[in-house]
Every structure is written in structure tokens, then in C-alpha cells.
């Protein structure tokens, strides 16, 4: 089992060479998982790990090679919250809205990000630096409210801390 990355890789490098290599790697994954259980979901997960998101071209490739109708694949991609067809920012801010975080003010943080940074959930800042997601419980309820930026988890965040936290990322 390959190591799963919680946060997708950066997508800034979308040059031709990268895209070409990415497709090669996806092709490899498809070949590896071809006949296995749940192949489409595994392939999509890994493809997203490589590209960062699932643009139509990737879906079309997977659809063709796994012989799954495109509409069915789209249905799968949009059903699971793990998948995204939108490019992500360099840093993905995930605001946890699990119960513990919610009762401890997760919503306030979200509101602040909306108000101060114009970030809507699933949105991205114009400079492509940050994108915002709301997520289900991260399982760090003891540290609520938490936000995750990339692999970092910020604990007991108060709205006043947001500015300092975001300044840590360039």
C-alpha cells in the first residue's frame, strides 16, 4: 500500500513536461490496479495525488483505460469529498467543522477567512496562494478548533491568530 498523502501535491508546476510525466504515472497506476476491487477509486486517489486535482483530461484517460463510462466516473468523483476537479492553491487551508470544532468556534474562523480574505469554501485566492476547504472531523477534537494547512495542524485557533498563521506560509 503506497503512502497516502492527506494534502494533494502542489500544482504550480503544470508545464508540459510535468503533465506528460503525470499522465505516464497515472497510466502506470491504472495498469497496476486494473483488475482490483474498487479500482476506479484507488486510481482516482492516486491520480489526484499526482496532479493535485482531477481535470477532465485525467478523468477521460481513466475512463478510457478502466473502461468505465465517463458519466459514472464523474459520479464517483463528485460523490466523494476527497476528490476535487478544481485546482488547489499552493497551500490548502482546511477548516474543521466537526462538532467539537464547531462548538468551539470553527465557524468564526471560516467567517473571518470569508470576510478578510474573500475565501469561500472550495475557493482560491486570486494569487493562487491559498485555497479553502471545510472538512469533516480531523479527529483532533482535543485541540479544537483546528485548521490544517498542508500537513500542519494548527490547534486552538482563534480568529485573531489567523493573520499570523497565514503569514507563516509563502
Amino acid at each position: 500500500m503506497a503512502k497516502q498523502k492527506a494534502a494533494p501535491a502542489s500544482t504550480t508546476d503544470t508545464g508540459r513536461g510535468f503533465a506528460g510525466r503525470a499522465f505516464q504515472r497515472i497510466q502506470g497506476i491504472i495498469d497496476d490496479t486494473g483488475g482490483q476491487a474498487g479500482a476506479p477509486i484507488r486510481v482516482l486517489q492516486q491520480a489526484q495525488g499526482i496532479v493535485g486535482y482531477l481535470p477532465p483530461t485525467v478523468l477521460k484517460t481513466i475512463s478510457r483505460d478502466l473502461k468505465i463510462p465517463l458519466s459514472e466516473l464523474y459520479g464517483v468523483v463528485t460523490f466523494y469529498s476527497f476528490f476535487t476537479m478544481q485546482p488547489k492553491g499552493r497551500h490548502v487551508i482546511q477548516v474543521c467543522l466537526g462538532t467539537a470544532c464547531y462548538v468551539k468556534g470553527g465557524q468564526d474562523i471560516l467567517n473571518l477567512l470569508k470576510k478578510e480574505y474573500g475565501l469561500e469554501p472550495e475557493g482560491i485566492t486570486p494569487d493562487g496562494k491559498f485555497s479553502l476547504e471545510t472538512i469533516r472531523c480531523l479527529g483532533c477534537c482535543g485541540l479544537a478548533p483546528v485548521i490544517a494547512i498542508g500537513d500542519d495542524i494548527h490547534r486552538k485557533v482563534k480568529p485573531g491568530h489567523i493573520k499570523d498563521i497565514l503569514n507563516m506560509y509563502h
Binding site: 477532465p56 478523468l59 477521460k60 463510462p69 465517463l70 458519466s71 459514472e72 464523474y74 459520479g75 463528485t78 460523490f79 476537479m85
Partner: peptide, 20 residues
């Protein structure tokens, strides 16, 4: 043909053709 399928989930579900 399987050109149609459900897209999205729950109250946002819609009938979608291919990649919507």
C-alpha cells in the same frame, strides 16, 4: 450508452451527462 449518471451527492445531486 451510459451517457447519464448522477453527479454530486445528497441535496445537490443532479443528473449529469459525462463530465457534467
Amino acid at each position: 450508452a451510459h451517457a447519464l449518471d448522477f453527479g454530486k451527492r445528497g441535496w445537490k445531486t443532479n443528473v449529469c451527462a459525462d463530465i457534467n
